[in-house]
């Protein structure tokens, strides 16, 4: 059995299995990390988003092979950070959450955006969210949540 090692939420982990698996399944089944969700299974909805080397990727179309030696952070790991607290408070305050199924992915997309661009404008936020579908909110309050997170977290990203 091949052995794939990677850093998962700050811990070095090893998976003994074929490399031909979706990262999403590995996270949910081998590590019981159910924050990343399966919404569409084909990279369209972003509910499965995680950070690969600090950047958002869709874990449903990332092969396990591609994370060998890399660093993965899921919402479970990210939720221990100060940045998360700011994003969480902003989403709560601005009404960015309804059914919640897309929300962990939205938070990951927000972190990936703000990590690169701490002061995004409206258009940049919309582009950054373009791979994360939400059916409940029409995005209006999610956009406002991210604007608030950027403002409240000034200097943290």
């Amino acid at each position: 059995m091949p052995k794939i090692e990677f850093k998962l939420n700050d811990k070095l982990v090893t998976v003994h299995s074929t490399a031909n698996r979706r990262l999403l399944d590995v996270l949910r089944e081998d590590f019981n990390l159910t924050g990343p969700k399966e919404g569409c299974g084909e990279g369209e909805c972003g509910a499965c988003a995680v950070l690969l080397n600090h950047k958002i990727v869709n874990s449903c179309c990332t092969p396990l092979a591609n994370v060998d030696g890399q660093e993965i952070v899921t919402i479970e790991g990210f939720s221990k950070t100060k940045r998360y607290q700011i994003i969480k408070d902003a989403f709560a305050e601005m009404g960015g959450v309804q059914c919640g199924f897309c929300t962990p992915g939205m938070v990951i997309a927000t972190e990936s955006l703000l990590n690169k661009n701490p002061h995004p404008n409206d258009e940049e936020i919309r582009i950054a969210l373009s791979g994360n579908l939400c059916r409940c909110t029409g995005y209006n309050m999610i956009i406002k949540s991210i604007q608030k997170a950027a403002k409240d977290g000034d200097g943290i990203w």
Binding site: T34, G35, K37, I75, K88, E93, G95, V97, T103, P104
Partner: peptide, 18 residues
């Protein structure tokens, strides 16, 4: 603020597949 924000944002809310 909505009462279920915390669990939904942190990904700990249990949906059926979880």
């Amino acid at each position: 603020n909505k009462v279920d924000n915390e669990e939904k944002i942190s990904g700990s809310a249990e949906y059926i597949a979880d």
